[in-house]
Design a protein around this nucleic acid. Structure first.
Length: 219
DNA sequence: TTCAAGATTTCCT
DNA sequence: GGAAATCTTGAAA
């Protein structure tokens, strides 16, 4: 009963549909020779031009977002805030920009490995529940051992990452506005499995741009 | 060449 | 609940 590996055909569609259909699918990583996997429970769709907040918007094709314009079924890894990677899956046919940000996973295999990676990479090894192992973009990337070396790799299983189709019935999908963006959060392009406890916690109030130390030492 | 901002997480008060 | 940590990229000078 091994689920099929999702090929380019799955990703060569409009980004919102891909993001929705990815819920319930399983991401498998073989980074570092250790196999880890998790079920996708939360995604966000990032389009190309016209989607403010996407790296592909207003800047044209650059070295960074070229992967989003490239062929579908590839990994697009982005590093931000100096601490965290984020895993995206490229959608849309080649030439059209589109990517699906994986925001949360339900850990399946390699839980011990993921927990070790999370603890090793960062500071103190305080309490770390399985539920908090991959319920955030940066968290799941760290748990799967994803870094910039994975950027641009195919998802067909020949490289570090692969995505398996979902086995059971379609989950209950809910949508909302995207999180954490300074722009473009009005569109409902965030999809998640309703009621799943591994979905990242909702933010009641929007994040405040707490950049209060912009003066003095110059950040 | 230099500066500013960011698709976040974590620790401290 | 608030602030710091830390690195890559894009745009301006």
């Amino acid at each position: 009963m091994s689920p099929p590996v999702l090929g380019a055909g799955f990703f060569a569609r409009d980004t919102a549909s891909v993001a929705r259909d990815l819920l319930g699918c399983v991401v498998v990583s073989s980074a570092g020779g250790e196999t880890t996997s998790g079920r996708i429970v939360e995604t966000e769709a990032y389009l190309g031009a016209g989607d403010l907040g996407s790296h592909a918007a207003t800047h044209g094709i650059t070295a960074r977002n070229a992967v989003m314009y490239g062929p579908p079924g590839h990994a697009y890894v982005y590093f931000t805030y100096g601490n965290h990677h984020m895993l995206n899956l490229v959608a849309e046919p080649e030439g059209s920009a589109g990517g699906v940000l994986i925001r949360a996973l339900e850990p399946l295999d390699g839980v011990e490995v993921m927990m070790r990676r999370r603890i090793q990479g960062r500071r103190s090894a305080s309490h770390l529940a399985v539920g908090d192992l991959a319920n955030g973009p940066g968290k799941l990337a760290a748990a799967l051992g994803i870094d910039l070396t994975v950027n641009g790799e195919p998802l067909d299983g020949s490289a570090t990452l692969s995505v398996l189709g979902r086995e059971g019935p379609a989950p209950v999908v809910a949508s909302s506005g995207r999180i954490g963006l300074s722009a473009g959060h009005e569109t409902e392009l965030r999809f998640f499995i309703e009621g799943d406890r591994h979905v990242s916690p909702a933010r009641p109030g929007l994040r405040v741009p707490s950049r209060s130390n912009t003066k003095g030492t110059g950040r």
